[in-house]
């Protein structure tokens, strides 16, 4: 597999996240074999590819939930992949993550879920934290559901509560792991709209792992496609629509027949 160092591109100053030749194996199974790409400040950046190609694995490196076997992860000019767990906390306050299954805490209601990081990191009292949590919940259009427990909500609502929780620390970057997978089309578009809104109004950089074609061509500024452990294509929506690469064409066209291999 080819491992090429990143070339300097003109907008170097705008780069906030850089993955540089990341390698990662689980047991004897190599998932990432030299993945490199940049994400620019304020954009909605999609990471796409087939199931099991390592999209989620890639982005989890940025918040230190996984550590690379080789390669560097840069966040805002600092190499973070070799920080200790404690040293990672400042990074995690600036980079929030919304997990695939929302991962709200079952034992707390929605408001308490959102209030937890506020109490822990902003030093708010419980009352003040709950008020702030209510404000954030309204921001994701779920103001009425604060007292509900995660088990009582649909998947789409859970995702939005998780997004509200991710907003608590005013992050600069939010990672979305398959935000629209397993949602019905309407809930999925609501989540898409929300992600676009956050980027446009708050200037948040969104890194979205997805294979939902509607999301990709609806809200992405730029896209990277991972394939067989490496980067197959990077570019904006137009680039992906007009590409001559048969593998990319097959994926974005959603065709059953073609050159793509599946693990």
């Amino acid at each position: 597999m080819m491992i090429a160092p990143l070339s300097k591109h003109p907008g170097e100053g705008d780069v906030i996240v850089r993955f540089d030749r990341i390698r990662k194996s689980f047991g004897d199974k190599t998932i990432l074999d030299g993945v490199s790409f940049d994400v620019r400040k304020g954009e909605v950046f999609f990471v796409i590819g087939g199931s099991g190609v390592g999209k989620s694995v890639t982005i989890k490196h940025l918040v230190g939930l996984l550590r690379p076997d080789a390669g560097d992860v840069w966040f805002d000019g600092v190499e973070v992949s070799r920080l200790t767990e404690e040293e990672f906390f400042p990074v995690r306050k600036r980079v929030a993550m919304v997990f695939q299954y929302a991962t709200l805490f079952d034992s707390m209601n929605c408001l308490e879920n959102i209030a937890l990081p506020l109490e822990k990191h902003r030093g708010l009292s419980r009352g003040a934290a709950l008020v702030e949590a209510q404000r954030l919940l309204e921001r994701v259009h779920l103001g009425r559901y604060g007292e509900r427990f995660p088990g009582e909500l649909g998947d789409g609502m859970k995702k939005r509560v998780a997004i509200a929780r991710a907003l608590t620390l005013n992050p600069e970057v939010i990672l979305f792991d398959e935000p629209t997978t397993s949602l019905d089309p309407v809930s999925a578009r609501r989540v898409d709209t929300l992600i676009r809104e956050l980027s446009d109004t708050l200037g948040v950089t969104a890194i979205v792992v997805s294979h939902d074609l509607t999301s990709i061509f609806g809200i992405a500024d730029r896209i990277v496609m991972l394939y067989r452990g490496g980067v197959r294509a990077v570019g904006d929506r137009a680039h992906f629509r007009e590409t001559k690469d048969e593998v990319v064409r097959q994926f974005v066209g959603g065709f059953a027949d073609g050159p793509m291999e599946f693990g």
Binding site: G143, R144, E147, F149
Partner: peptide, 12 residues
């Protein structure tokens, strides 16, 4: 606020 639905407690 005030949710229109009952909120069952998970633990009594």
């Amino acid at each position: 606020m005030g949710s229109p639905l009952e909120t069952p407690q998970p633990l009594v």
